[in-house]
Amino acid sequence: MTKVTMTVNGKSVSAEAEGRTLLVNYLREGLGLTGTHVGCDTSQCGACVVHVDGKAVKSCTVFAMDVAGSEVRTIEGMANADGSLGVVQQAFQDHHGLQCGFCTPGMVMTTAALLANNPKPTEAEVRHELEGNICRCTGYHNIVKAVLAASGQDAGAMAAE
């Protein structure tokens, strides 16, 4: 076991980890940040997406030791400073972009990364970016509306599926 230190959601943190400890397990078990979900363990579903140094990463594919010293942002770090929902989270709530909620943390994190790189994506760009995130409940329509709304665009203009 080795002490692994990084900045998570703006705070310096340390926890013991084996060399084979995945970032998702480090966050959930080492730090108690259970908002990042383990869905498939094969990098297919996107439920485990977090940001590492500003980039969206599937945390089930990265060793915690490999991101030591990095800035990591999890779903717990997406809220506003006063604890209210952040813009992306609020858009998902307002546009019913979730049902069971299991995929939601990964969808929110992927959306935040998309909007940081492309503040006004088209519907096609949103759908392309979300291809690495699986939702078994919503059919994606309301998720795409939520992403467009979070970008400040009129999600009401999106055609019904």
Rank of each mutant, 00 (worst) to 15 (best):
V88H: 00
S12L: 07
G132A: 04
G35T: 14
T110W: 02
L114D: 09
I134C: 10
G86I: 15
K3R: 15
K145R: 15
Q89G: 08
T34A: 07
A112R: 14
K58G: 06
K11S: 09
M158G: 11
C60Y: 07
A150S: 09
L130Y: 08
A159I: 08
M158V: 13
F63E: 07
S84G: 12
G152M: 03
G35Q: 11
E123D: 14
V62G: 03
T2E: 05
L98A: 08
A160C: 04
L23W: 12
V62I: 11
T42D: 08
A79K: 15
T34P: 07
C137H: 03
P119Q: 07
G106W: 05
V52W: 06
N9P: 00
M109Y: 12
M65E: 13
T5L: 06
V87E: 15
A112W: 14
S14M: 00
H141C: 07
N142W: 00
R127H: 06
A17Q: 11
N9Y: 08
C60N: 06
L85P: 14
K55Y: 02
A15S: 12
V13C: 01
G97F: 12
G83H: 08
E123M: 07
A159C: 02
A64D: 10
V50I: 04
T111G: 00
R73V: 12
C100H: 00
M109S: 12
E123P: 03
E29D: 14
V126A: 08
Q89H: 11
A79E: 13
H37A: 14
T2R: 09
V52Y: 09
N9M: 03
S151H: 02
T104I: 08
T7Q: 03
A47S: 15
G101M: 04
G86S: 15
T104Y: 05
G46H: 05
S12I: 03
A91P: 03
L85C: 13
S43Q: 06
A146K: 09
M65Y: 07
S12G: 07
V144R: 05
L23H: 07
T111L: 02
Q153W: 14
G101L: 05
A113K: 12
V57P: 08
R127G: 06
L115G: 02
E71M: 00
A155D: 14
G97S: 11
P119M: 09
K55T: 14
T2C: 00
T2V: 05
N117L: 06
Y26S: 10
V62S: 01
F102S: 04
E129D: 09
H37P: 00
M6Q: 05
R20L: 06
D82G: 03
Q89V: 08
V87R: 15
G97W: 09
V147E: 01
T61K: 10
E125M: 10
A91N: 04
E71V: 02
N117Q: 13
V144Q: 01
E18I: 01
D53R: 10
S14I: 01
C103V: 15
F102Y: 15
A149W: 03
F63S: 10
R136D: 01
V62L: 10
T36H: 01
T2P: 04
V13S: 03
G32H: 01
E129T: 12
Q44P: 00
A81S: 11
R136G: 03
V49M: 11
